[in-house]
Structures are given as C-alpha cells and as structure tokens.
C-alpha cells in the first residue's frame, strides 16, 4: 500500500494512473477479502452457487439495492442520511407504471422520466429541508419516508397498478449481450457515480463538505448547494431503483420498497464509508451491496429460513464495522 502511494507521488505518468485506479480497490481491500471469503464458503457448501446462471441471478438481485446504496453513499459522505429511499421507490414506481399500462400506452421514455423526476423532486425537497432550513437529515428524511409512502397510497388508493406494457417490463427482465438489464443499469450507475466522486470537482466538494463543512465554506465552496445536490442524486437513484423494481415485479405495489433503506445503508456501511462523513468510496459500496446479495442468495440456495437470514445479515453488518475499526 505504501509502495503504491509512493508510485502515485513519484512514478511515471502511466505508473501513476495505474496506481491511482488500484488505490480505491486497495482501500477497500478488506471488504473485497470478506466478499471472496463468503463466496468460497458458499461454493464449498453448495455446488450450484458458482454457476453462471446463479451469478446472473445474484447480480440481478443485488442491483436494486446496489443502485439505492450508490445514492445513499453520496448522502452519507456529506455526513447525512436518507431514510426515505424505500418510500420514494414506491412513489416513483407508481408514477412510472401509471403511464404505461394497457390502455394508457405512452412511450416508455415518459415512464422513465416520471420515475427519475419523482425521485429528483422528493430528493430536492429533502435537500432544501436539510441544507436551507437546517432540519437534521435524520428527521427530514424520516418525515419524507412517511410522506412519500402516504402520497403513494393516496395516489394509488392503496391498489397496485398492473398490466404494464412489455417495454417497461423489459427494463426488469430483458437481457443485453447475455446480461440482465438491471445489472447493466447498476454497473452503469456505479461507473458514473465513481467517476463523479473521484474525478469531478463536485465529487471532491462532497468529500470536503463531509470532512469539514466549515473548512469547505472557508475554501469558497457553496456547501449548501453541494449538500442539497447529494439528496437530489440520492432521490433520483431511488426513483431509478423504483422503476427497475416495478418493471421486475411487473406491477407497481403501494407497499413496495418497505425496509429497502436499511439494506442500502447497510451496504454503504459494510463498504467502509464512515457515517461521520468525508471518508469512503463507491468501490466499497459496490462490494457491500454484493456481500448482502451473496448472503441472501447463498442462504436461499441452502434453504436457510429467512428468519435466520435476517439474524446473520445483522451480525455481518456489525462484524464488518468491527473489522474496519481493527484495520484502522
């Protein structure tokens, strides 16, 4: 690791670039090890685990939580939290589905824009409450968790919207080059998110605001705008996740996404991003989401009761944080 740092500082340009790219992975090294260990464990316990089909399935299952977790990472890096993402998924899914049921066949693009737009608007509301009116993030998004759910129920009158057109369902169940569309969306979001955080001025400002808001302001950063923007991103991705979920379940359910915020936060925390802001990476979050997905998948294969799955998942969250503490 030190050798790598030296390379970044003193190496030739190409050496530097390589070192830079691997740097993020090295930082997330322990989490990758944990992930590999879990894979080895399940491989030895179940022969079906390490098959291509199962992995496609696993990735598909992880993709929704993964998309959510990427948005939540932005927020947590600024020392915030977003508890409303599960409800936002349901609301966005509802908005998207309503436009493309049989007898109401708009182009699927409208449905996509509706989902993303809904998410972004709710995210903006969170951002304004938190960054402008100074409501603590926990409280603002807890309120939004309930409000967005309420809006979903009012809008749908508590009933699911089914009969989606094939074009929307394709987002959930289609394949491109042998890879499921949700997985491709997840990877694309990861790549864009990773580039944003590590390569853009905005990404730097996110880390700076989370690390020391006052110093960031002294340095001329519009901290309120940055904070609000992270909630918009988080809401937008929750809307996208809601769209994918709706497409996969082939119906928009008013109770969709309940409790999803907890898995998303868990993925971020397992991935080593600090709840006190300023430290963490999307590579960590990627593997955090994969670990949660792998545990679910592996235990499903072995026929472990979902009650035990809950127990084990909780234990792993705590263990991941302990491992991180020890490493420091």
């Amino acid at each position: 690791m030190n050798a790598n740092i030296t390379k970044i500082a003193t190496g030739t340009p190409s050496e530097r670039r390589k070192a830079e790219i691997t740097k993020d992975f090295i930082k997330s090294f322990s989490i990758i090890l944990v992930f590999l260990a879990i894979c080895v464990l399940f491989t030895s316990l179940n022969e079906y685990f390490l098959t291509w089909n199962n992995w496609l399935n696993l990735l598909r299952q992880s993709s929704i939580n993964g998309i959510l977790a990427i948005g939540v990472t932005f927020v947590i890096l600024t020392k915030g939290i977003d508890l409303s993402v599960g409800s936002v998924m349901a609301l966005a899914g509802m908005m998207a589905a309503n436009l493309v049921t049989t007898g109401n066949e708009h182009l699927v693009i409208w449905s996509i824009l509706a989902a993303l737009g809904t998410g972004a608007v709710v995210g903006l509301a969170n951002g304004v409450l938190i960054a402008r009116i100074n409501v603590p993030p926990f409280v603002a998004t807890l309120g939004m968790l309930s409000m967005a759910r309420g809006l979903t129920l009012i809008y749908s009158d508590g009933r699911p919207i089914a009969n989606l057109t094939a074009s929307l369902r394709w987002i959930g169940s289609g394949n491109v080059l042998g890879l499921p569309v949700p997985v491709l969306i997840f990877f694309a979001v990861f790549l864009i998110g990773w580039l944003t955080l590590s390569r853009t001025t905005f990404g730097r400002y996110v880390y700076a605001v989370g690390g020391n808001e006052k110093a960031a302001r002294t340095s001329g950063i519009s901290t309120r705008t940055i904070i609000a923007a992270t909630y918009v991103i988080c809401g937008l991705l929750a809307g996208l996740a809601g769209l994918v979920l709706t497409a996969r379940t082939t119906a928009a359910l008013p109770q969709a996404g309940i409790g999803y915020e907890l898995d998303a936060i868990a993925a971020v925390v397992i991935g080593g991003t600090s709840l006190s802001g300023g430290r963490g990476s999307l590579v960590g979050t990627l593997f955090g989401a994969l670990i949660i997905g792998t545990i679910n998948n592996g235990m499903d294969l072995m026929g472990v009761s979902s009650y035990y799955q809950q127990l084990l998942k909780g234990a792993i969250i705590v263990l991941a944080v302990i491992a991180d503490q020890i490493r420091k």
């Binding site: 730097r204 700076a208 690390g211 020391n212 006052k214 110093a215 960031a216 950063i221 300023g278």
Partner: peptide, 16 residues
C-alpha cells in the same frame, strides 16, 4: 475547525 479537511489528502486540501 475551519482551515482543513483533516480526513482528506494534502493534495486535495491544497487544491480545494
């Protein structure tokens, strides 16, 4: 308190 982002690198602080 207000001069540096302690958790960030020297480089990132300089160019902030």
């Amino acid at each position: 308190d207000s001069g540096l982002v302690l958790s960030s690198s020297i480089a990132h602080n300089i160019t902030l």
